[in-house]
Amino acid sequence: MSLVELEGVSFGYTATPVVRDVSLAVESGEYVGIVGPNGSGKSTLLRIVLGLHEPDSGSARLFDSPAGAFAERERVGYVAQDVTGNATKMPITVAEVVLMGRFPHAGFGRIGPEDREKARDALETVGIDRLADRRITKLSGGQRQRAYIARALAGEADLLVLDEPTVGVDAESVDAFFGLLDGLNREGMTVLLVEHDIGAVLDHAGRVVCLNREVYFDGPPTEFADSDALDRAYGTTVRRDGDVTVA
């Protein structure tokens, strides 16, 4: 069973499709990095994977059920761009944020000692347990992204979906952050990462998907470096598509 399975997915916010005829499957244990130029539909594709958008055509499945109706929500951890720093001034501690990972498990029930322990363990795993009682807004961008990973770990997610997690994070912390993802992936976590930094994806991911509305490349990083997919997806060069010339 694929954790993520997109088949012929097209989607547009307006009549113009943002993603067109994308097929993509992510198997358990994989580390998939999606790269592509700005506005290439990377983030939209993630939102379709997560069931936040219904595809206009094609099908999106998550853990073998339609992504929009997927019920076992705790199995997916989601880390977005670090916007919290500017967007919220909410008084909330790191520990409280990480504990949210347990909420889908608890439903309307109470959060128990076991939930708190799992949240504590997750904070230790990502190495920021000493910051548990700090306000999340007082953390650096890199520390904050670790907290969101910890939230996914506390929820015992099987699939980690990250949307440009290192935007606004300083270079040194970015390295450490990718180190953390590598470690989690080695221990069996499936990672689906959208990233603007192609170098980081080539260094860390086991598989590269190059997207610009449609999939230009899908394969191992070494092959991607040798292919011309990057030029075709990013460049303005004309490409041959069957016998139709597409600009």
Partner: peptide, 14 residues
């Protein structure tokens, strides 16, 4: 609390 903190993550969490 979840919705107040992060609407998108809350939606992902079901």
């Amino acid at each position: 609390l979840y919705v107040t903190f992060d609407e998108t993550a809350a939606r992902v969490a079901g």
